[in-house]
């Protein structure tokens, strides 16, 4: 995949906002002092009257977002995933989810690929926190194409959602016109010996791992689980039945995230071996994203090793 185009999902979000703003006069974007980083700055320039700069007050931003949404706006409110899902958790739970407010929590800088800023800014807990809130849709797109498509879907639907977006440039794995449906997993590669269920930026790594495995005679199915909630249970059960083993891969803690969500389905329906690739119950640190992914065990090689452990 050496020549493949690389775009950060946050950049796709920025483009999406500007395009969608033209179609939806009731679309409001909010940012908590990081509009250049979370890519809401394009929307701010295009539609200043519909942009709210909340300053460094994430809790206030998400509560105000609820107020705006309950007044008829569709609100995309952005900050780093750490401060959205983490700092504003209880406001998201009580003022957004409990009311059913139409707020899209578009959280950028998820996971360890935040890189140099280090552990205080790297969250591995956000998907776990968000997926246990009743009624919250949780999306974690793998690339720029799926990010735009899933954002368009969630903005068109009523109710709260959490969209995890990344800082780092990641390979574009889908064709421009690929169609995505919230809650419907995408099988990106067929296979019969094992299934790798990946989410977010780990989907590209799962594809790379599957290619390595193929060369060794192991046929790995690769599923892009872009929607963590509502989870595509059917695709998971089918994978367990047809391939007999599952490896999950996420740029998130193995506690409470995709791995846990998949395991919950597997143990209740068709127990097979499951191995989980992800952050292992520890904090991150400063470093280049690629170095961190390697050190903390979230690379194609780690997926390959996990596959071998369940086969």
């Amino acid at each position: 995949m050496a020549d493949v185009k690389k775009i950060a999902t946050r950049a796709a979000y920025g483009e999406f906002l500007v395009e969608e703003g033209a179609k939806r006069p009731n679309l409001v974007a909010m940012s908590a002092d990081l509009s250049g980083s979370n890519k809401t700055d394009g929307f701010e320039k295009a539609y200043p009257e519909r942009f709210i700069e909340s300053g460094i007050s994430e809790q206030d931003m998400y509560a105000e977002a609820a107020g705006l949404a309950l007044s008829g706006k569709v609100v995309c409110a952005s900050t780093f995933a750490m401060f959205a899902a983490g700092r504003a958790y209880e406001i998201i739970r009580n003022s957004i989810a409990y009311t059913g407010a139409n707020v899209k929590i578009c959280a950028t800088h998820g996971g360890i690929t935040v890189g140099e800023d280090g552990a205080s800014h790297q969250t591995f807990e956000d998907i776990a926190l968000m997926r246990e809130i009743p009624g919250m849709v949780v999306l974690n797109p793998a690339d720029a194409v799926s990010a735009k498509a899933l954002l368009a879907e969630t903005v068109a639907a009523d109710g709260p959602s959490y969209v995890r977006l990344g800082r780092a440039n990641v390979p574009v794995i889908y064709d421009e016109n690929e169609i995505f449906e919230i809650g419907k997993a995408k099988t990106v590669k067929e296979g019969s010996n094992v299934t790798i269920i990946a989410t977010g930026i780990m989907v590209a790594d799962a594809i790379a791992a599957a290619e390595t495995l193929e060369a060794e005679g192991i046929s790995a199915r690769v599923i892009d689980m872009h929607t963590i909630k509502p989870l595509d249970e059917e695709a998971i059960i089918k994978a367990a039945q047809e391939t007999g083993a599952i490896v999950t891969a996420e740029e998130h803690s193995v506690i409470g995230g995709l791995g846990s969500a998949v395991a919950e389905v597997v143990v209740q329906n068709c127990p097979v071996k499951v191995a989980m690739v992800g952050q292992k119950d520890c904090f991150g640190e400063s470093g280049k994203p690629a170095d961190l992914l390697k050190k903390y065990g979230m690379t194609p090689a780690d997926i390959v090793a996990a596959v071998k452990s369940v086969k």
Binding site: I52, A63, L68, S71, G72, S95
Partner: peptide, 20 residues
Amino acid sequence: EMSTGSLGQGFSVAVGMAIA
């Protein structure tokens, strides 16, 4: 008009409504 109970949030939500 708003589900409340967790203190402080209602004030901020109301500000959002006023902005709208």
